[in-house]
């Protein structure tokens, strides 16, 4: 491995300052949560930090707290703690399920919510060291290449899909992302936190080099809120989502008061489908209606040469998940 120094900040702001300071000294800093993704990138020399800022040791950065109706989750909570947390299981099942679907037990024990949300893409070109947009280069190798696992929505100029399961759930829960920088903090909605390649092809989110995702805040769950995450894998364990969906419905009997549906594995960001949500709003959720919502969700998909299968596949899981959540 290339050499670097490890830094153990006291708090998130100090973490951010360490990154800022490194930059001023002409050095490169990176943040690590559980480390699973970052160490892989360093070993492959895709990331080359001189300073690695370790966030997971920060005291109190892994708590789940309820404030009023809202729930604040520290970014450094482990994915396994998150998936077993009683508050989350009860009110925000979609997030617990998404966290529990990540990789393997070992990675969930080490990996953090913030790390899962901020992990780099798992595009096979990027991970194999091709000088693509995501590596600071100026092309996307998948566009005319092997794009079986690439975007059908929101692609261009990079066609990666966002790799995080929890990000899909967080967007479906209308989470707010609390970001800490060297001189303060800001809060972004999911819509503003995740950024498309056309905004900045090298990045997946709005974090500056010296900012960290400190926590997420989930709004109060409506009384009739039910939710679920459905992930399609490429073997029966430890792959990123081929496609996935997070469905959050506020149900009154068998009528849907409101819906949030987000797709994973289809776009460079978690892909919300408002038109499909509208199909459900105010309606009795029948299998036919779920199918119509699924159809609507995939309208406008623009597959590349080798990933058109994602359209029927995603439709199917949207239909199934909407039906299942409505029935539950």
């Amino acid at each position: 491995m290339r050499s670097f120094s490890n830094a153990n900040p006291r708090d998130m702001q100090q973490a951010a300052k360490l990154a800022q300071q490194a930059r001023m000294e002409g050095r490169n800093a990176a943040f690590a949560g559980g480390g699973s993704d970052m160490l892989g990138l360093i070993k492959e020399r895709i990331a080359t930090p001189d300073v690695l800022v370790h966030l997971k040791g920060i005291q109190g950065a892994n708590k789940v707290e309820t404030k009023g109706g809202a729930t604040v989750i520290g970014g450094q909570i482990s994915l396994s703690d998150l998936s077993h947390n009683q508050v989350i299981l009860k009110r925000y099942a979609v997030l617990a399920e998404a966290a529990g679907s990540v990789a393997t037990p070992q990675i969930r024990n080490a990996g953090t919510l913030a790390g899962n949300v901020c992990q780099r893409p798992w595009c096979w070109y990027f991970r194999n060291g091709f000088p693509c947009f995501k590596a600071g280069g100026s092309q996307c190798f998948s566009f005319n290449g092997e794009n079986q696992f690439h975007a059908i929505f929101g692609g261009g100029p990079s066609f990666i899909v966002h790799p995080s399961d929890t990000a899909v759930a967080l967007m479906a829960l209308d989470a707010k992302f609390r970001i800490v920088g060297p001189s303060g903090q800001r809060t972004l909605s999911a819509a503003d936190f995740f950024t498309l390649p056309k905004q900045n092809a090298a990045k997946e989110n709005a974090l500056a080099y010296d900012e960290v995702l400190a926590s997420v805040e989930l709004p109060a769950a409506a009384a009739g809120q039910r939710s679920s995450y459905h992930k399609v894998l490429d073997r029966d364990a430890w792959t990123h989502a081929v496609v996935s969906t997070a469905v959050v419905l506020d149900m009154n009997g068998d009528t849907c008061r409101s819906a949030r549906i987000v797709l994973g594995g289809v776009a460079p960001i978690p892909w919300r489908v408002p038109e499909a949500e509208k199909v459900l709003t105010g309606q009795r959720v029948t299998p036919e209606l779920a199918a119509r919502a699924a159809e609507t969700a995939l309208a406008g998909a623009q597959p590349l040469a080798k990933n058109a299968y994602k359209i029927p596949l995603t439709k199917e899981i949207v239909q199934r998940t909407v039906s299942a959540v409505a029935r539950a």
Partner: peptide
Amino acid sequence: ALVAAAAVPTLDAQTPAAAKASGGG
């Protein structure tokens, strides 16, 4: 169109391209 992993311009997860690493050793 391609280079070895070792020769790829590199970035870390949350830092833009401007930062540059030294040769190591």
